[in-house]
């Protein structure tokens, strides 16, 4: 008896689920056909959405590329503390041990005056003027402690160390041009790169916010117009007993379609542009390859995420518009 009841209830449940699924499919169908009906508004809405997604895409790429570039430069960079000419490794040892203890220091190495001279001679063996300068200045050539950092943009600890360590004070070179500056060989302090990254990030976030807002407004208005254009139809639907979901659903689907189409277009345009520009970017010293590898390697994921962003923008603005203008 009770089992009969249970199966009956299960059947009813199953029936209801099937009905909900059917309704969902029908809502999708109506939403898609409304998308086609609205041609011009649709084009406009899809266009702003595409621009918005492109900006989000560009922000992501810029951020990745700058980070990679910074870390490439950072790896090439070492920081040097110049010691008095002729300082031996044994003399420098206590300073090096102390340096090694700093949390941001990965590794420390010592280059004696002689090593330095040899290195310099090797690096400049085709440059007679420089070699001559070396012999003249050989009595002034410093010994060097090279420091490799984990976080290349954070040198505060190092600066603090140089300013306070008393052993170092006695050893440090006082020759002009040999005070520690912690600059890279390219003459570009990593702080500068870090600040560029931050600025780029800020611009990206601001542009994204602006265009997300514009998209919201345009889609909100598109849906509002669609509601206005179809008010007789909506009235009829209500009067013959369509419920809220059935009336509102197609408008949501319509907005999702804007997002999905815009995502595909934006990813396409963004990626192709990036590929076309990649050589030039590399020539400018931008490390772009990892970003391109990521984007092409996870293309479907990228498209999917873009679709999700687009759909969320679409759904939220459509929900607000239907809530505001669809009196149901």
């Amino acid at each position: 008896m009770s089992r009969n009841k249970d199966t009956a209830r299960a059947l009813i449940q199953q029936k209801r689920r099937r009905r909900q699924w059917l309704t969902f499919l029908r809502v999708c169908r109506y939403g898609l056909s409304n998308f086609r009906r609205n041609a011009w508004l649709t084009v406009a809405a899809t266009l702003v959405m595409t621009i918005t997604l492109l900006i989000i895409f560009a922000t992501f790429v810029a951020q990745q590329a700058l980070r990679d570039t910074a870390s490439t430069i950072g790896k090439e960079l070492d920081r040097s503390i110049y010691l008095k000419s002729g300082t031996t490794e044994a003399q420098a040892k206590p300073v090096m041990v102390a340096l090694q203890r700093l949390s941001n220091v990965e590794r420390v190495s010592f280059i004696s005056t002689d090593d330095g001279k040899n290195n310099f001679a090797r690096d400049n063996k085709n440059d007679d003027a420089r070699l001559r300068a070396l012999t003249e200045a050989s009595n002034r050539l410093p010994a060097t402690i090279r420091i490799y950092l984990y976080d290349t943009s954070d040198t505060s600890e190092l600066v603090e160390f140089v300013n306070t360590n008393t052993t170092l004070k006695k050893l440090i070179s006082t020759q002009p041009g040999q005070t520690p500056t912690f600059m890279g060989e390219r003459g570009l302090p990593t702080d500068v790169i870090a600040s560029w990254t931050q600025t780029a990030q800020k611009i990206g976030v601001a542009a994204t916010a602006l265009f997300v807002a514009v998209s919201f407004l345009i889609i909100f208005n598109t849906i509002r117009m669609a509601i206005f254009n179809r008010r007789d139809e909506i009235e009829m639907m209500k009067l013959i007993g369509a419920n809220k979901e059935f009336i509102r659903g197609p408008f949501l689907i319509e907005a999702i379609v804007y997002g999905v189409i815009a995502a595909v277009i934006a990813t396409g345009i963004g990626l192709v542009t990036l590929l076309l520009m990649s050589e030039r970017l590399q020539a400018w010293g931008v490390t772009i390859q990892p970003t391109i590898q990521f984007l092409t390697g996870y293309l479907w994921l990228v498209v999917l995420v873009m679709m999700m962003i687009g759909s969320v923008i679409g759904v939220v603005s459509s929900l607000l518009a239907t809530r505001r203008y669809l009196k149901i």
Binding site: T23, R26, R37, E235, A242, N243
Partner: peptide, 23 residues
Amino acid sequence: KLLPQRTVFENIAFALEIAGMSN
């Protein structure tokens, strides 16, 4: 108050669709 973009059949079917009736 018919749906202008829908055929005769679809207009009539609409009343059943909103009630969740099967195809």
